[in-house]
Design a protein around this nucleic acid. Sequence first.
DNA 1: GCCAGCACTTAGGACGGGGTTA
DNA 2: TAACCCCGTCCTAAGTGCTGGC
Length: 728
Amino acid sequence: MSEKATISSKNSAEDSEDEGPLSSTIKMRSGGEPSVKKEIEEKPLASEATQNGSIKKENEQLNSPKALNKRLLGDSSTPTQSSVKKPRLSESSVSAKAKQVSVKAEVKTEDDDDDDDDDVPIAERLKKAAVAAGTSQPKKKTITKVVSSSLKTSKKSKKIIKKSQYSKSIKLQPSSGDGQKWTTLEHNGVIFPPDYTPHGVKMLYNGQPVDLTPEQEEVATMFAVMKDTDYATKEKFVENFMNDWRGVLGRNHIIKKFELCDFTPIYDWHQREKEKKKQMTAEEKKALKEEKMKLEEKYMWAVVDGVKEKVGNFRVEPPGLFRGRGEHPKMGKLKRRIRPSDITINIGKGVPVPECPIPGQRWKEVKHDNTVTWLAFWIDPINSKEFKYVFLAASSSLKGQSDKEKYEKARLLKEYIHEIRVNYTKDFTNKDLAKRQIAVATYLIDKLALRAGNEKDDDEADTVGCCTLKVENVSLVPPNKIEFDFLGKDSIRYQNTVDVELPVYKAIGQFKNGKKDGEDLFDKLDTSKLNAHLKELMPGLTAKVFRTYNASITLDDQLHKNTKDGDVGLKVTTYNLANKEVAIICNHQRTESKSHTAQMGRLKDKMKELRDEVDKLKVDLERAKKGKPPVKEYDDEGKEKVKRNLAPDAYQKKINSTNAKIEKMERDMSTKEELKTIALGTSKINYLDPRISVAWCKRHEVPIEKIFNKSLLAKFAWAMDVDPSFRF
DNA sequence: GCCAGCACTTAGGACGGGGTTA
DNA sequence: TAACCCCGTCCTAAGTGCTGGC
């Protein structure tokens, strides 16, 4: 069970029949087909119009007959042959279908209210429903075409955007339809961690120092340095560690029982080393850093189709003890050292194969597969069914292209969401149990942004997603609430009580009926069935698209509704609040920092000091008004403090400025408290279409650097030239 | 239709640098 | 000057989803 606080639900009880998922107006054809096919072929998509035509180009490419090529079954292990894989449907189909979707290019102004609730996440609409009952239909400005150049960015905002060295956009090459990811690829392979250097510090066994070989000492040290982590106290961790360590120690070694092991001498040695490192002068640290840089420089870059791109993880993982999350059955197992003979390299044909950095050794294999993006991989030593890949960095064009496609797919869902909701609502009462389960699962994924929930093996932590929810994870709370309590990805607890439509409540009751704890709630369903069904509703649609859609549309909606005139600081606060809403929806949590309570305590003390100061200043102000000197004050040693006589105006000024400090501090404290277990970064990196943020910054003259750090600016370079009118 | 293999995205925590404060 | 704290970066685990083969 996670120790983290649970994010409380924002889903409220206003989930009435009228304001449910189906209440909103939609742009649909009477036949139920989304939007206007003919119109589209003549007019660009709204998004196309804002993308300098680049998307249209993509669609053409993805639509090409080449996209239907099948995978050729070549011997991919032969270095001279590259396997050509069948492109994923999702890559081609979304863009292809995109042509069939509506669109009159519409621009909603900041003043416009949303009149189409299907463009808003359900959770938000539920909240809105209570407030908005009886509100009049808002107006929407419709124009025939949006061309980026026709929308003027104000001079000032242009300047702000231009000022940023990262604001230049990159033009992404559309991904080809045949699954080919690159034409030429050059890189220098991977770098290995240094060999183990024995320290010679002896651990104790049964109180006596023990001699260990370097290999045995290395594993002992891995455990010793984790002595003060939670892992070291977990039975499973210790058990797995001891089993693997015994293998290294050999059958006849004196060390048998963990209880008799004392790793303290090694732990202390490690602490001293850490301290030594800390005590190094700035110059020494700099020199060390430069040396490391020199060693690594050549591995940091790849050249893809003639463009120099950063490599993401060019360092091979060092050996260690496996740190699985939650109650992972393999925690503590020895993750052995990876050697060149474990590594498969992928590189362009006709360019030099990276030299193996360890003399006398060689790569396991060299491939030339241009249908994949990995530069190297090795088999995970903890789970031999899995691979560890070396990919390009997030800032690379390849990653950028795929990121953009992800957001375009989520935007496409906007066009289909109404029909999808109509569809699943109808099926809440379907006689076919499988259909009923699909309907309810889709509803939960849409409404609560739950993950799909693939099946898991027994040798993984016991976590669930939507399709793998167990009977005990879901409780009925009459008359129509459902309480969720389960461990999701990374064993993060999801605890939420939500109002649901009555048919959903009844259906879940039926699914639970006659089942015991530990049994699947959706016994007729798994992720492949669910995704197959979703694909019938929209090309390329899968469960995870709903998370992207919900997150991005929530940000867009919140920014649209809540941005007020004011200084940049205020606007950034508005942004962060919107970001927080998204993090709550996606259940992005972090562990409360160990020092949080102490930090809050210190802030409270400081606040009290400031308040006392204001009280004293008020007294002195009254005295000054009467021409009296300020009240005498004494320090800890009883010596009188020097206090100047000030004019009443000066006291008032001081009071005002101290009050301002108090107000700021109150705001900071409440933000700190609210965000102590909420992680904002995850959604910003993975779920929020960066074009929403960039366009909002342009419209409101907020420097983009206030929203994106250096890494994000690089990752989202492709989004920087978005038109200011862009809406998700 | 199912499963295993594969390729990729999404995720939280560790760590360290640098700015701020006492 | 040290302690504190924030933030960016790195690390790698843990998900999702597609495909081919049976």
